[in-house]
Amino acid sequence: MEETQRYESFQDGMKACVPTMLGYLGIGFAAGVVEKGVGLSLLEILLLSLLVYAGSGQFIICGLLAIHAPISTIILTVFLVNSRHFLMSLSVTNYFKPYSILNNIGIGTLLTDESYGVLTTALQEKRPLTTHWMHGLNIAAYLTWVLANITGGLLGQFIPDPNRFGLDFALTAMFLGLCLFQVELPLKKRTTQTLQVLMSVCITLIIFMRFTSAEIAVIVATLIGCLVGTVTHDDQ
Rank of each mutant, 00 (worst) to 15 (best):
residue 23 G to I: 05
residue 107 I to V: 13
residue 43 L to N: 00
residue 77 T to P: 09
residue 100 S to C: 11
residue 24 Y to V: 05
residue 37 G to K: 02
residue 72 S to A: 14
residue 47 L to A: 13
residue 21 M to E: 00
residue 38 V to P: 09
residue 81 V to I: 14
residue 28 G to T: 02
residue 41 S to G: 14
residue 29 F to V: 05
residue 65 L to R: 04
residue 20 T to V: 15
residue 26 G to W: 03
residue 5 Q to Y: 04
residue 15 K to S: 04
residue 11 Q to D: 04
residue 64 L to M: 14
residue 60 I to R: 12
residue 77 T to H: 12
residue 99 Y to G: 01
residue 44 E to H: 02
residue 35 E to C: 13
residue 11 Q to F: 15
residue 69 A to W: 02
residue 61 I to P: 00
residue 84 R to M: 06
residue 65 L to M: 14
residue 46 L to C: 11
residue 16 A to K: 13
residue 15 K to Q: 10
residue 73 T to Q: 10
residue 15 K to W: 07
residue 78 V to F: 09
residue 55 G to Y: 03
residue 53 Y to T: 07
residue 17 C to R: 09
residue 108 G to P: 03
residue 32 G to I: 06
residue 93 T to E: 12
residue 3 E to I: 11
residue 64 L to R: 10
residue 34 V to C: 10
residue 50 L to E: 02
residue 34 V to H: 08
residue 75 I to Y: 10
residue 45 I to L: 03
residue 33 V to R: 00
residue 7 Y to R: 11
residue 68 H to P: 01
residue 40 L to P: 01
residue 29 F to N: 09
residue 59 F to W: 04
residue 61 I to T: 11
residue 47 L to W: 05
residue 44 E to Y: 02
residue 100 S to Y: 11
residue 91 S to W: 06
residue 77 T to F: 10
residue 95 Y to P: 09
residue 67 I to D: 12
residue 95 Y to G: 08
residue 20 T to I: 15
residue 67 I to Q: 15
residue 71 I to H: 13
residue 86 F to C: 09
residue 60 I to A: 15
residue 36 K to P: 02
residue 45 I to A: 01
residue 99 Y to P: 00
residue 51 L to W: 00
residue 53 Y to N: 12
residue 78 V to C: 12
residue 17 C to W: 01
residue 9 S to W: 09
residue 100 S to F: 06
residue 94 N to A: 15
residue 45 I to C: 01
residue 8 E to V: 10
residue 43 L to G: 07
residue 67 I to S: 15
residue 83 S to T: 12
residue 76 L to G: 05
residue 102 L to T: 11
residue 89 S to Q: 08
residue 3 E to K: 12
residue 50 L to Y: 00
residue 47 L to N: 03
residue 46 L to E: 07
residue 107 I to E: 01
residue 105 I to T: 05
residue 103 N to A: 03
residue 105 I to S: 02
residue 33 V to G: 01
residue 72 S to Q: 13
residue 96 F to H: 02
residue 33 V to K: 03
residue 41 S to R: 08
residue 26 G to E: 04
residue 28 G to Q: 04
residue 42 L to I: 14
residue 24 Y to L: 13
residue 71 I to K: 14
residue 107 I to L: 10
residue 99 Y to A: 03
residue 61 I to F: 11
residue 79 F to K: 06
residue 38 V to T: 11
residue 9 S to H: 11
residue 34 V to F: 08
residue 106 G to F: 07
residue 44 E to F: 00
residue 59 F to S: 04
residue 88 M to Y: 13
residue 71 I to V: 15
residue 67 I to G: 06
residue 60 I to T: 15
residue 108 G to N: 14
residue 5 Q to N: 12
residue 94 N to G: 12
residue 103 N to G: 01
residue 39 G to A: 02
residue 36 K to F: 12
residue 65 L to S: 04
residue 24 Y to Q: 03
residue 15 K to C: 04
residue 97 K to C: 11
residue 103 N to P: 00
residue 84 R to Q: 04
residue 67 I to P: 08
residue 104 N to A: 04
residue 23 G to W: 03
residue 44 E to A: 08
residue 79 F to T: 08
residue 12 D to L: 08
residue 45 I to W: 02
residue 98 P to V: 02
residue 103 N to W: 05
residue 95 Y to C: 07
residue 96 F to W: 13
residue 90 L to I: 06
residue 29 F to M: 12
residue 30 A to K: 07
residue 3 E to Q: 13
residue 42 L to H: 08
residue 87 L to A: 09
residue 77 T to D: 06
residue 41 S to V: 07
residue 23 G to Q: 07
residue 108 G to K: 11
residue 55 G to D: 03
residue 65 L to H: 05
residue 54 A to I: 01
